[in-house]
């Protein structure tokens, strides 16, 4: 055995998913469709030395997300996540409107 870790953490997919989405998926929360664990995508175990990127549940190792990148296309499979909760900044109140405390 080489001693090199087999996986890296979920922050590894930030670049690959930024290409597809306007949001940073690694700060999203998701639920594992297999065991129900809820966690940040950044906490997943990511196997990126493969024909695609595979993110697995840190608890049960089930596949949460697969991303395959061809030169002109990408495929994203999220069937292992029963939901994703994505933080979106709340709209900023117009400056003219007084804010009542």
């Amino acid at each position: 055995m080489t001693g090199v870790p087999e996986w890296v953490d979920g922050n590894d997919i930030a670049g690959a998913t930024r290409e597809l989405f306007a949001v940073d998926l690694t700060v999203a929360r998701g639920r594992c469709a297999t065991c129900g664990r809820e966690a940040m995508v950044a906490e997943a175990h990511v196997y990126d030395r493969a024909p695609g990127i595979v993110a697995r549940c840190a608890s049960c190792e089930s596949v949460l997300l697969r991303l395959v990148r061809a030169p002109d296309r990408a495929w994203l499979d999220l069937r292992g996540l029963s939901y994703l909760e994505v933080p979106i900044p709340a709209p900023v109140a117009p400056a003219a409107m007084p804010v009542v405390a």
């Binding site: 087999e6 196997y47 190792e61 596949v63």
Partner: peptide, 9 residues
């Protein structure tokens, strides 16, 4: 012989 793997060994 690159090692490719989609999951834990």
């Amino acid at each position: 012989f690159p090692v490719l793997s989609a999951g834990p060994t």
